[in-house]
Structures are given as C-alpha cells and as structure tokens.
Design a protein around this nucleic acid. Sequence first.
DNA 1: CTTAAGATTGACAATCATTTTCAACCCAGG
DNA 2: CCTGGGTTGAAAATGATTGTCAATCTTAAG
Lengths: 149, 149
Amino acid sequence: MPATRKIFREFIARKGLKSTQQREIILDEFLRSGSHLSTEELYLRIRAKHPHIGYATVYRTLKLFAECGIAEPRHFGDGQTRYESTHAQEHHDHLICTGCGAILEFEDPGIEQLQEQVAAQHGFHIERHRLEIYGLCNKCLPSRTEAAQ
Amino acid sequence: MPATRKIFREFIARKGLKSTQQREIILDEFLRSGSHLSTEELYLRIRAKHPHIGYATVYRTLKLFAECGIAEPRHFGDGQTRYESTHAQEHHDHLICTGCGAILEFEDPGIEQLQEQVAAQHGFHIERHRLEIYGLCNKCLPSRTEAAQ
DNA sequence: CTTAAGATTGACAATCATTTTCAACCCAGG
DNA sequence: CCTGGGTTGAAAATGATTGTCAATCTTAAG
C-alpha cells in the first residue's frame, strides 16, 4: 500500500517530526501483519527481527499511525488496544464472542448500503465506520443455554 | 425499571449468589444515574451516601450487571470502562462527525435485520452490537472539499 | 562534510484502571 | 442461633500504557 506510506511521511513532515528507522520498521510490520494485532503481539513480531526496538516506541508509533489516520484503535473488551490498518485490506466488521473471545470477520454489502442511505438522509458523508456485534459463537452457545436468560 | 431489578434478582438466585445491601445500593444508584457513567464516577456518587462501600465492590457488582444483561460496557477511548443501562432507552446507533464532533443518533431496522442474517450464517447468537459511522456532517462537508485527501 | 538543535529512542520507573488476596463479615438454611 | 459458603473492604498485585531522561539519531544550516 504505497498510499499508506505516503500519508504517514506527509504527516511526519507536516508535524515537524522525523523519519526514523524504527518508524519505518514498525510501519512495515504493521502493514505486513494481519489485523487485530494487539500492541504486544506486534511488538513481539518486531522484536523477533529487530531486538533493539523498545516496547514504548511501538506504543508511541502506533499512536502516530492512529493520529494520521492510517490505523484505527479498537477495544474488544480484553483490556488491550488493537490497531487495524485502514487502507491495507477490504473493510470488514466483527462478530465478537463474549464467551471465548473469538473474533470473526464478515462483510455485508447490504449493511453498507443501508448505512449509506441513513447517512444520506442526514446529509452525512461517510469516511469510515465500525460495526461490532457481540454475542455467543456456536461453540459457546450450548454451554450457556440455561444461564443466558 | 422494575423489570431490571427482577432480572438481577433472578440472576442472583439462579447463580447461587446472595442478595446483599451493597448490591441493592449499587443497583439503585446505577439506575438512578444517567448513562455513560464511568465506574469511578458511580463509585463517588455511591460513596457520598454510603462511605462504607468499597471501590472493588462497585467493580465486581458492575460486572455482574453486565453478565446478567442489565448493563452494557462501553469504551470511548479514554481508558475507562463505562456501563450503560440496557433498559433505560431504546437502542440507537451513532453518526459521528469528524469535523465538528457532532453526534447524531439513528436507528435502522433494516440494518439490524441484516445483522441477524450475518450472525445466523456464522452460527452466532447476538447479545448486543455497536455501530458507529464516522464522517462529515452537512455543515462540515463544504469546508473540507480540498483538504480531505 | 561538519555541526548544532532538537526530535527520538530504549530501559526502566511511574501511573492508572482493574483485579486479586484474605481475614472479617453477612446471608440463607437447618 | 449456628454454620457453610458467598461477600466485603482495604490493601497489595497485576497488566496495559505512559512518562522520564541520558544517549543517540535526523535534519537543515553553515
């Protein structure tokens, strides 16, 4: 995704910040890795190749990514912040199991289209959205049949 | 909300837990207070009338509320968990303007229905969901026509 | 190329929300 | 009442995230 790198570079320049090796490395690994990576998971992957990069730097850099819009922070309820690339792949939404914590991705053009309609009714121009559905997956459903309600 | 109290009492009974003064007091204050209260804010309100109730008890009790479905935890990015009463008002989703910060509420039965379809395809049982659409409202749209990309 | 100013880094300490620990205590049933 | 086991409050522990600070790297100027 060349656009993502460009956005970040321009952001760095505009803010009077500096382009460093660490930031490039972290951006590389962030874009290469799949979504839903927690900061710790990303840090561990980076450290595998670049043991000199510190935990705090990963945190700081991810906040920069979020600030310039190339990453989006998410909270799935496990106490950790996860960042997702906004340009790397097709948009998708999430089914999150409150039983086992499993995260399923899905995309539904119908839902997207209805969102556009709703936005249009309000004179609203959509930049992005977030849809998270919480519930029980088919593995956890049986074990909660009596406790659920 | 008499139903809410009943749900909680039944949950307590079903789980073999006990009905205590503290739990009643916390439920009272939780229902009396508006939504989006952080745990700390709720604790402070409770402590004003009942100085003997501890912080940990409020945390523990709110988790019980969430577990039995009468409260819903939310994360707004400030690092604190907020609980919202699920019976206080109708469900709604949000359009959030990234220009001026305005928040519009909406509800769309069509979107809800498609969500049910998606969940069914994945063998998923929905407990709750959250849909947030970010973009520009009709007031902010004109001023960003060139700066957007 | 050299240099100086200032941003950045990494190791570690500090912070903040939340959870756990544990002895004292309360609730339900016998 | 009594007893077993869930509950509580205070404090310590935990875990994620952020701040500190001296050493280091970037960048633009000289």
